[in-house]
């Protein structure tokens, strides 16, 4: 009589017994393991077959390339491109470089054209007869400085009639108080130096009022200073012509130049007043 082998309670009744190797693992079979009829060797368990499969794959897989700097870290392996937008990035870089160089050349061209139109040096001046502008002159910077030095001592020409004329022609209270004591002539103020350079102002007094203001020296050692002063000095000159005094407002962005301008302008006005007193 056949007696069934002892069985343990099945922990997973839904699992097929032949899912792994065709045998119930809970059955202790007295028979040897089944033999593969073709290989003439016992049928391997699933674990053994998986181990053999892994060994075959490891043998047939090409060796992995050593990680490089472009594929290191999370980008290693997987065949991902290190820079999906590499072409766009290269284009952006080339465009940026070309724009930088091209724009620099274009700005230089504009600067050359502007310099040719305005002359080699600038003497910023203004007068009451016209608008205050940056006028070009044919003199160079060195000759302008030399001429300024010369006019410092020779420009005073006080006349006796200027006080009366200025008093009668001054139509504003400011002009009446500040310009009535000025003698006609051209007066050059002291040179005031600030951290950016010297500032020197020259005024022309006609009929007792300031009719022209020239800035014969201003910081022009660098392009930034030239640019700032070309904007600031006309405003300062306009303000001086309107106020007929050194009481001018500071131009934003040109604080030092404004301060030096006031000092030099005041010294020029003082010279005109002293000439009137002496005359």
């Amino acid at each position: 009589m056949h007696t069934p082998s002892p069985r343990l309670p099945d922990p997973d009744p839904g699992r097929l017994h032949d899912e792994r190797d065709g045998r119930d693992p809970h059955v202790t079979s007295p028979w040897p393991a089944p033999v593969d009829p073709l290989l003439r060797r016992p049928t391997a368990t699933a674990d053994e077959r998986l181990a053999r499969l892994a060994a075959r794959r490891a043998a047939t897989r090409p060796p992995e390339a050593p990680p490089t700097s472009r594929t290191a870290g999370s980008r290693a392996g997987g065949g991902r491109r290190p820079h999906p937008a590499g072409n766009a990035r290269a284009s952006a870089l080339a465009l940026s470089l070309a724009t930088t160089v091209g724009m620099a050349a274009y700005l230089q061209h504009l600067d050359t054209v502007a310099a040719a139109a305005e002359g080699a040096s600038l003497t910023i001046s203004g007068s009451t007869s016209g608008s205050t502008t940056a006028n070009s002159t044919a003199t160079t910077a060195t000759t302008a400085t030399t001429a300024t030095t010369a006019t410092t001592t020779a420009a005073t020409e006080p006349t006796a009639a200027t006080d009366t004329a200025a008093a009668t022609t001054a139509d504003t209270a400011v002009a009446a108080t500040s310009a009535s004591a000025l003698a006609d002539g051209t007066y050059t103020g002291d040179t005031d130096r600030n951290k950016w350079g010297p500032v020197q102002v020259q005024i022309t007094v006609t009929d007792g009022s300031i009719t022209s203001v020239d800035v014969v020296q201003y910081p022009d050692d660098d392009r930034k200073s030239v640019q700032i002063n070309q904007r600031a000095l006309p405003a300062l000159i306009e303000s001086a012509l309107q106020s007929q005094s050194a009481d001018v407002d500071t131009v934003s962005g040109a604080t030092y130049t404004s301060d030096s301008y006031r000092i030099s302008l005041q010294s020029a006005i003082d010279a005109a007043r002293a000439a009137a007193t002496a005359g």
């Binding site: 952006a92 940026s96 724009t99 930088t100 160089v101 620099a104 050349a105 700005l107 230089q108």
Partner: peptide, 23 residues
């Protein structure tokens, strides 16, 4: 050389600003 730097600093500043905004 100073002139070249002056024009380059203006152009590179503009390009840098464009790149910052684009980024």
């Amino acid at each position: 050389m100073t002139d070249l730097m002056w024009f380059l600093t203006r152009s590179s500043g503009v390009v840098a600003l464009v790149l910052i905004v684009a980024t």
